[in-house]
Amino acid sequence: MSSCSRCQKMMAGALYQELAPHHQQAFDAHLATCPNCAEEYQQLLWTLNIMDQRQPPAIDPAYWEGFWNRLSDRLKPDRRKVFRPDWRRWFPPVTLPVRPAWVSVAAAVLLIATGVYIGRSIYLGQPNGPAAVTRAEVLDPAVIAEFNGMLSHYLGQSRSLLLGLENFDTGYDDPALLDFPRQQMMSWELLVQGQEIKRHAVASSDPRLQHLVNEIERVLLQLANSEGEDLEWTIRLVQEGVEQNAILVKINLTEQEQGEEVIEESKSLQGVKKSALWI
């Protein structure tokens, strides 16, 4: 990278005196020898001086009274909603108003279907339920291969689900176009798979994977427990969770590391085969 492009990268920090002392020194030294960059710096400083002359509007105090009244009117529908304490956010609310019968039937069918689906996908072939993974088991190549498959599926599914929501533009796209019940179902499925992966991560002393699954779990719970009343808000919460924890980046890194491990394993297996040929 040329020193001019390095200088350009430091320009914003230099304009606002936010460079570390050694960077500032390097920046000043470059300006002293490069008339082009020095000229550009002066031009940008000039621009900031002009922008400094902007006069913010002085707002009449009378405006604020009307502001609150209008805000209060717009908040009226929200005030009717009852706040639930934090811990209750994780559970669906139990309300007893009269609902159309088909809503109750549909909810019951969905609940049973979810249970059957999760049960079939996780417990099939395991009559006693999932056993805790032992330290010895995680060293077994067959268990490793099976786990890698499960992890790869889990990460891939989580990525596609979260990426879809991350790219969803709440200001532009229509939430009705989202297949929300399917995404909730998928979230539940991933939550169950996440438990299995966490058990394996604990047994194989992999705190990074454990941490990632925990972060994914927190976001999926927002989705899985959403009552579907304010989809836009749920999506925004999911997007914030994904962005704040850089979950998609972490998933990509984990997948990349996992891929490298598989290549290493296959290379070492090929090495064994080649050395067997020499014998």
């Binding site: 805000l71 908040l75 929200d78 956010r89 919460l237």
Partner: peptide
């Protein structure tokens, strides 16, 4: 402020 009102419990 409306969004803040809705999100403040969280």
């Amino acid at each position: 402020f409306i969004k803040a009102y809705r999100a403040l419990p969280n």
